[in-house]
Design a protein around this nucleic acid. Structure first.
Lengths: 205, 205
DNA sequence: CATGCTCTCAAACGATCGTTTGAATGGTAG
DNA sequence: CTACCATTCAAACGATCGTTTGAGAGCATG
């Protein structure tokens, strides 16, 4: 794979991610993507086979990294003996924050992820469930150890709510607009602090 | 407005709501909508002016009712002297549940609402903010009275998270699939119970 | 230089999109 | 009955969609 090819692939993925976040999968056209990436229209079908292939690659690129970081944070935690609920939640939420703060179009993918939750497409749902569901199960094991009085079904209910709330908050899709005085990054950092406290209280209830 | 016209309008709105929930606003075409409603293609532009006019009417029809019910439930609560946090949260969440349990395509609108959160379209966002934001402010007043130690900004953060969690949970967009043994209605009723307990704990933290 | 491979490009494909048009329909008021 | 108005209908509009094609550019290997 030549350097030029790599550059074309990456530019397409970056622009596609941003446009999917802004206009949705059906709402963003390949012509918008290729124009934004300054590549030929046919490049998408050449490199990704189809539009859906492009969509899946946008997810895979970020989710692989996100899942790896979350599991690594969880594994680092397991080595310690004094695990707290907040620490586990931090291991789950913080990687998403870190990723959203990345240099180029950081927050874009979190918004794409929020859209994916809203999509009902079976193929996309299955793809996400295989990745995200696995991480959630790993975390559930640790949560169950920390919360012995919580039965499994009840925990899954609450984790489900937390996952939705995290995605929602990270995507900054709230109704209450953030104060323009603080930056988007500071906004996200605050959100993580609040989410952890909120989720911990909810799990302990 | 004749009976036939009313019927046509309502059939279009019902089918559009279901298709928007399933395929998104850009993903559902007017030809799918009119075919499903068994009306002529031109009927949409005749009755609603444009596709966007149809989208707005889908929202207005349900949101007006939802907001009215939420504020009514809150007002009924204000008459009492022994207001609890759970009761206020119930006034906020239960109307959404009731609506989602309505006979014809009950859960559809909640999913449309979840999609709207993910949309970045400025016109749609403004429309939703005007309706939903107003209700949220009314509730915030009561919450602040019940939680005197919570400052306003912090409360808004948490309400934001709750609103997102409610929408996601109600829309049944969780990663963990509900057990097929229980019905969708029972699933939603459980969700409300859990959401209220979760949210109350989070607000009291 | 010749060969083979990866990648880019302009152009076009058929399909589908939202919208418009103008005629036909059917009930209602004068 | 006639005139009017709201509504429905088939048909077509231009625009845009995802995808395909075939030629050619660039570069490496023999």
């Amino acid at each position: 794979m030549s350097q030029a090819s790599f550059s074309t692939r990456e530019r397409i993925l970056g622009v596609a991610e941003a446009l999917f976040a802004r206009h949705g999968f059906a709402g963003a056209s390949l012509r918008q993507v290729t124009a934004g990436a300054k590549v030929n229209l046919a490049a998408v079908n050449y490199h990704f086979g189809s539009k859906e292939g492009l969509i899946e690659e946008v997810f895979r690129r970020r989710l692989d990294e996100l899942n790896r970081e979350r599991l690594a944070a969880l594994a680092a935690l397991a080595a310690r003996s004094d695990i707290t609920l907040e620490a586990v939640l931090d291991a789950f939420i913080r990687p998403a924050l870190q990723q959203s703060l990345q240099a180029h179009g950081g927050g874009a993918f979190v918004r794409v992820l929020a859209r994916a939750y809203a999509e009902h497409d079976e193929r996309l749902r299955r793809f996400l469930s295989e990745n995200y569901g696995h991480v959630l199960r790993e975390f559930a094991i640790v949560f169950l150890r920390l919360l012995p009085n919580l039965d499994k079904d009840e925990l899954y209910w609450r984790l489900d709510i937390i996952a939705g709330a995290v995605t929602y908050a990270m995507a900054d899709f709230g109704i209450i607009k953030r104060r323009s005085a603080i930056s988007e990054d500071a906004h996200r950092r605050q959100a993580v602090t609040h989410l952890i406290a909120f989720a911990a209280a909810g799990l302990r209830a």
